[in-house]
Design a protein around this nucleic acid. Structure first.
Lengths: 331, 331
DNA sequence: CTGTTAGCGCCTTCAT
DNA sequence: ATGAAGGCGCTAACAG
């Protein structure tokens, strides 16, 4: 029950392997009848090309590498899903590597991708430094950063507009009448954290609210972090009347801290998250959050890669997509 | 800036391509010094084998296929993460396909995996029928079902013990003094749904509680479903004092329905979920739920696959791992 | 111990 | 419009 190869079709139809190959690849220089016969036989035998052989020959594997920090996190999971969808449309397969937020793993993942001869690479780093990225550029493997970028590095990237997101969230709270708005941010080594903080500051500024340093922290990534920071915020005096959190996961922690103090959301403290992760709408108090256009981001990333793979490059592409505020009941 | 090949190392060291290959592959029949020279040169040149060529030659790609229903769902995301970890340990790469719970996509995914020449396949189907699976067996590609199985099909599988899970959850509620325990189950086309229902029935039986058909439904998969079923349960008279839901996602919906009626968890209605998804512990009322040993499941699945790939087979393996109850504040 | 020979399945010349 | 030859990079078989 061996695999069907070009040779099989060749012997069965009487043509040469070559003609068969050409017919199957839709080359123009094949006789009409010949092509028909060959295609029929191929279908009959359920021929499927051997990607390995093809890849070896053409040095194209029709495979994209995807490196993410944590697939178990629905934020990345969603991204991976979209990437897969986009890639599928062009018959690209996806090789996945999870770095578990670990820098060494990321380096390793890159090596694997190189060994796999992926045609292109999407990488969604979270907290790595630039070294990996620089190494990339040297490897000449087409790649694009997703959801994060480095200001001082000339690479292609597709991100959400975090400044806008920060502004949207903060302005929304201001419009609801809040002035004591706390910012439970992420570490500033993450580019999105910086953008969101800037947006927050801008919004306060524009509305003549001065920033209270006590209300600003930049070290939360997990729910746990959110809980801890939330705890101290809730106990501070005066306490904030609203909180803008780095992510929906961080929000979960903050919400819990708020509730543990016997306070109500949004009556006592309003809260806005970020990411619009799947469960955000399902919480007991559905979470107001910033929606990231993951689908578009994934599609654009794949398009950029395809262009680079096909050699249609005209300088690095920098795409920053607008985000949207999803107002639910936590504000 | 071409890739380094065996030939490069061969010419530079003066040995034949072959010897180089053997040295690099750790074959015993290579001289000590020779090996040393070759390894050094390989390191110096930063040689990395071409997986395509290797795969073509040896018909082993050192790649595992993973087909899941929805990576964006943290349940599957977690599974994928674990699979990746397990595979990584043996230097297997992972090709991912997301079926989006769609049967046709699943069929397509299998084709892709075949074309990719993966060495083995892990498949985590949700609601497909057996046709895909049967087709597999014919393709002679080593595969293992994860988290689900078919009673009447002789295949390898690794699952959690859903009957036990159903029993654990129900017994826990009974011990807490509940008698009016509702079951918000999943469609019985999903094997886990069947197991959980059986466990539920058994537990009730053993404790002499008779099953109230009004309290049993089997059609919830999403949070939305949970919400709808929850709504009607909450309004029924007498209403249940506890609810055992098919999954944590379904629980979210049920919890929301409960709250909307102005009832408290767990005081008015206790609730137990299933899956122990990442956010279950972070909810305002942390969810009591059944923990599935995903890590072990993933590891065993990979081990089974490795054995099959290496031809060490001794009949289909059926592994059913015990689950555990994680008691939190929703009960 | 090491080298030679022979493909894996495909595609790209070049010839016919 | 078709065929023959060569090779992508690697490994397995057989010599020496």
């Amino acid at each position: 029950m061996r695999r069907v190869t070009l040779r099989d079709i060749a012997t069965e139809t009487g043509f040469s392997i070559n003609t068969v190959s050409r017919a199957l690849n839709g080359k123009p220089e094949v006789g009409h009848d010949t092509r028909k016969i060959i295609l029929e036989k191929a279908a009959e035998l359920d021929y499927r090309p051997n990607k390995l052989a093809r890849g070896l020959r053409s040095s194209r594997t029709h495979t994209l590498g995807v490196i993410v920090a944590d697939v178990a996190n629905p934020y990345f999971g969603g991204l991976v899903k979209r990437l897969h969808e986009a890639a599928r449309r062009y018959n690209y397969s996806i090789i996945l590597q999870d770095t578990d937020e670990d820098y060494l793993r990321e380096v390793e993942a890159v090596q694997v991708m190189l060994a796999e001869h992926v045609d292109g690479l999407v990488i969604t780093p979270v907290q790595t430094d630039e070294a990996t990225i620089i190494r990339f550029k040297e490897s000449r493997l087409p790649f694009v950063l997703l959801g994060r970028h480095f200001d001082d590095l000339e690479t292609d990237y597709v991100t959400q507009d975090d400044e806008q997101g920060g502004r949207l969230a903060t302005e929304h709270l201001i419009k609801r009448g809040h002035e004591r708005i706390a910012f439970v941010g992420g570490p500033l080594s993450i580019s999105c954290a910086v953008g969101r903080l800037r947006g927050y500051e801008q919004a306060l500024n524009e509305h003549g609210i001065c920033l209270n340093p006590q209300f600003v922290s930049t070290r939360s990534v997990t729910t746990e972090d959110g809980y801890n920071v939330g705890k101290s915020l809730v106990k501070s005096k005066p306490r904030p009347s609203a909180i803008f959190a780095f992510s929906d996961f961080v929000s979960l922690g903050v919400m819990r801290a708020i509730r543990e103090e016997g306070l109500e959301i949004p009556e006592d403290i309003a809260i806005v998250g970020y990411d619009d992760v799947s469960f955000a709408s399902c919480l007991s108090v559905p979470l107001t959050t910033v929606h990231i256009p993951r689908k578009e981001m994934a599609e654009i990333a794949v398009d950029i890669l395809r262009a680079k793979i096909d050699g249609n490059v005209d300088g690095a592409k920098h795409v920053k997509l607008p985000v949207g505020l999803v107002v639910r009941q936590s504000t």
